[in-house]
Simulated scan of single mutants.
Amino acid sequence: MENGNRIGSLSITPTVGRQTPQNDFGTVFARTAQEVVRTGAGVVASLVPGGPAVSAAVSSISRVVSTAATARGASAMPLPGGAGGAGSATGTVGTSGQGEQWDLLAAQKEMQAEGMKMNLAYMDLQNDMQKESRAHNAISNIMKVRHDTAKAAINNIR
C-alpha cells in the first residue's frame, strides 16, 4: 500500500568549502575601533581648545589600536586590557596629562548633549509620523465605512 504523502527522490548536495570569509569578533572589533579613532580624531581635535595635544593623544591611541588590530589579526591571543583594543587605548590617554583629560571629558559631554538633541528631534519626527499615520488610518476607516454603507444601500435597492 503506497502513501501519496511520501517524498519521492532525495538529492544530497556534497559538502563544499566555506564561501564567505570567517571574521572573528575580536578582529572585527579592533578594525572598527581603529576606524572610530581615525575618523573621530578630527572631530575631537576641532572641539577641544588644546588641539595639538589632543591630536597627539588621539594619534597615539590610533597607533595602539592599529597595533592591537594587527596583533589580533596575526594571532588568536587576547589583547591586554580586555576584548578588542579599547582597554589598552584608555591607558594611553591617562598618560597625556590631567588637563587634556578634562578637555576630552568636556568634549565628550558636548557630544553627548548634541546626541541628546538629535535623539529628541528624532523622537519628535517619530511622533509626527505616528500622528499622521493615525489620521490616515482614521480617514481610511471612515471612507471604508461610507463605501460599505453606500454599497449596501445600492444592493438593497436592487
Rank of each mutant, 00 (worst) to 15 (best):
R134L: 10
R72V: 04
S59Q: 15
S133G: 07
A45V: 12
S9W: 03
G17V: 05
S55C: 05
N127D: 11
Q101A: 13
M111C: 03
T15Q: 08
R158E: 07
M77A: 14
G8V: 03
I139N: 11
L79P: 01
E132S: 13
N155H: 11
G91N: 11
G73Y: 06
A56L: 13
T27C: 04
A30W: 00
A71K: 15
R6I: 09
G115Q: 12
T149M: 10
G84R: 02
I139E: 13
A71H: 05
G81S: 06
G85L: 00
A86G: 03
S140F: 04
M77L: 13
V93I: 15
Q112H: 01
Q112E: 10
A153M: 15
S140N: 10
A138Q: 12
D148C: 05
F29E: 08
T20S: 14
N141C: 03
P52S: 15
E132I: 06
A53E: 14
P78H: 03
A107C: 12
A57L: 11
E132D: 12
S88F: 07
N23H: 11
Q98V: 12
Q22W: 03
V37G: 01
N127P: 00
P49Y: 11
N155D: 14
T67W: 01
E132T: 13
R38K: 14
F29K: 04
T70C: 03
R134M: 11
A30R: 00
K109P: 00
A89I: 04
A121R: 11
M123D: 08
G26T: 03
Q130C: 05
V36K: 10
P78D: 05
F25Q: 08
Q130W: 08
V36W: 05
S75P: 01
H147P: 00
V28N: 09
V28E: 14
G115I: 02
E132F: 10
Q126D: 04
R134W: 03
K151E: 12
P52D: 15
P21Y: 05
S11M: 10
I139W: 04
N137T: 08
A135T: 06
V64E: 14
A56H: 06
V64T: 11
G87R: 02
M118I: 08
A138W: 05
P80E: 09
K151G: 00
R72C: 04
N5Q: 12
M118N: 09
L120W: 05
T92N: 07
G4F: 08
S60G: 00
G42R: 12
Q34Y: 05
V93Y: 03
A121F: 09
P52V: 09
M1F: 07
H136E: 11
R6A: 09
K117C: 02
G4S: 12
M129F: 07
L125F: 13
P49A: 14
R72G: 02
V44A: 15
S55D: 15
G17S: 06
S62G: 15
A83M: 07
H136W: 08
N127R: 10
T95K: 15
T27F: 05
Q34W: 02
G73V: 04
G115D: 07
H147G: 05
T27Q: 13
L10G: 01
K131Q: 11
V64W: 00
T92D: 03
V58H: 05
A150S: 09
S60V: 02
I12G: 01
